[in-house]
Write a protein that binds this DNA or RNA. Sequence first.
DNA 1: TAGATTGTTAATCGATTAACAATC
DNA 2: TAGATTGTTAATCGATTAACAATC
Lengths: 207, 207
Amino acid sequence: MRLGTRMLQRLPLYLRVLRGMGHEGVRYASGAAIAAALGLDPIVVRKDLARTGVRGTPRLGFPIDRLIPELERLTGADAEMTAVLAGVGKLGSALLCYPGFRRQGLFIAAGFDAAPERCNIILSGTPIFPVGTLTETAQRLGATLGILTVPAERAQRVAEQMVAGGVRALWNFTPAQLEVPDDVLVQREDLAVSLAVLLHRIRERNQ
Amino acid sequence: MRLGTRMLQRLPLYLRVLRGMGHEGVRYASGAAIAAALGLDPIVVRKDLARTGVRGTPRLGFPIDRLIPELERLTGADAEMTAVLAGVGKLGSALLCYPGFRRQGLFIAAGFDAAPERCNIILSGTPIFPVGTLTETAQRLGATLGILTVPAERAQRVAEQMVAGGVRALWNFTPAQLEVPDDVLVQREDLAVSLAVLLHRIRERNQ
DNA sequence: TAGATTGTTAATCGATTAACAATC
DNA sequence: TAGATTGTTAATCGATTAACAATC
């Protein structure tokens, strides 16, 4: 199904709220209740939930136990994706140690670093190897996603090693502009971008 | 000026490219050249640049030395904003040590942590204090932005301490849903959201 | 029955894309 | 002059908001 980006960004939020409600023993959630929990417009929520294909019942809401698996399917959390991560600095190790990714279907099978003292250790269950072995190891592990948390000037080279190792998508946390084959998907995760939006919004409000 | 979110997200990218060109001694940049460097549509770039108010000259392009300060103004990089950061774990210290924020006008004046062994040290030039002193210190420093990199279950309480200390906007890196006064701006920075979009896009391409 | 909530269709809004005249 | 590029207006597209009928 072809989902819009904006809707897609809301789905993990719904999942989080619904899981919370599920743990409290609630069986049905109304669009209005979910919207209130997230500070969203109820109409948006209702429309998004309608698009999942799960039918709600008037006066009751949507069945949580059918909504959760469907949202997991739409966000890709139902199938595991194997990733490798390059650059085990502060940000890289923060990502490696974040337990939430696993629940979303992301399995980081290995980390890589250029510094020998950071290699051949195990960080939060993930083995760290020298970056020279990246291509070979990514291939052996069958990684389809590469996570880039290296310094910007190393990003292009590491991206190429990842692509050579069979990676089909890159999650780029560096500010570098990557040149990769057209069929390799690149998603930028740029804090400078978020910060610019935030700063502008603050200024805007202040007058 | 009222700028759309999408345009606002592109401005820091233009800035980066233009600064690079400037260092190489280039004086004028055409919309097409910037677009090529970023993999964007030239029409989008031209229109965005037109909205900055800087006039380009046909056949030549836009004057870089006038575009850069204007983009800095629009992204808020021309004035300094003082911030405090709570939660000096892996992600928190990654943010504290990231030198790029300073160039964007963000000054993180202090960090806070609940663990005594992480307090009363200086990390990359920023002093770290016990979280108990947050409200008082934020007020003393005149912080207007609070950055949350604490565990999700602590987020609400820390947010309240920040708001009590005069913070007017929160940059929330936790998955917690914050309850704050209406006039406090909250920007979510949720990796689960980005990951869901990425995973969906990968699946979508694979069939 | 009354009322809350879903489901659906239409209207509005904002962003992107297209087309083309103006200009150096 | 010719051609590349800007600047502007119109068309398209997608997302949000509004309105209201259907349903439990």
